[in-house]
């Protein structure tokens, strides 16, 4: 803040330095996940199992499930367990962290087509050179699960999941 006593100075003003204002939009949401998304998240949390939704019109199995079929607009009301293994359809690497990142960098994003699903699930994977297109991955569930897509920590190459099981 600046004060001035030159209230009667009528000389032309010099253009000021640009003035920046800082702000943010705060809005808290409580999203009901509804019956369909909620069923998927509940199955992750309570049973560490992955559900797809079956389209009543075209029979497509969507993972993650939605209440509507994106293709034929029919209702999706039935569920089918899918996976847990899946095949990598695409991947990329995140080298640097960012606010609210799901994992410490580096990690990979994967599109993984789970057994029995007609769509691919976007999820995370370790930055492991075995995580490539065509590789089979297996979900690693968190011990404490709260009903979120991140209840699956990430999908790991099959071999390392088995190695881990052997080590335990």
């Amino acid at each position: 803040m600046k004060t001035s006593d030159a209230t009667h100075d009528r000389r032309p003003l010099e253009p000021p330095e640009l003035v920046y204002l800082k702000g943010e939009t705060r809005c808290h949401y409580t999203w009901s996940t509804g019956e369909v998304v909620g069923s998927f998240l509940g199955a992750l949390r309570d049973h560490a199992r992955i559900l797809g939704a079956v389209c009543s019109g075209c029979g497509r199995v969507a993972v993650p499930p939605l209440s509507y079929c994106e293709e034929c607009c029919s209702a999706m009301e039935d569920y089918r367990e899918v996976g847990p293994r899946g095949v990598v359809m695409s991947w990329t690497r995140v080298a640097a962290g960012f606010p609210d990142a799901p994992l410490p960098a580096p990690f990979r994003y994967v599109l993984v087509k789970l057994a029995g699903a007609d769509t691919s699930l976007l999820h995370l994977a370790p930055d492991d050179e075995r995580v490539v297109v065509g590789a089979t991955l297996h979900p690693e569930f968190r011990k404490v699960r709260r009903g979120a897509i991140t209840d699956i920590k990430w999908f790991v190459p099959d071999e390392s999941a088995e190695e881990r099981t052997r080590e335990q």
């Binding site: 993650p64 359809m89 695409s90 991947w91 995140v94 609210d100 976007l122 995370l124 297109v133």
Partner: peptide
């Protein structure tokens, strides 16, 4: 969307990269 995508932090660059790999491969 807040249920399946936002918790994973996907941005436009990473989404494009997934498409780029699908296409080029």
């Amino acid at each position: 969307e807040p249920f399946y995508t936002r918790p994973l932090g996907l941005d436009a660059l990473a989404a494009a990269a997934l498409q780029a790999r699908s296409y080029t491969r």
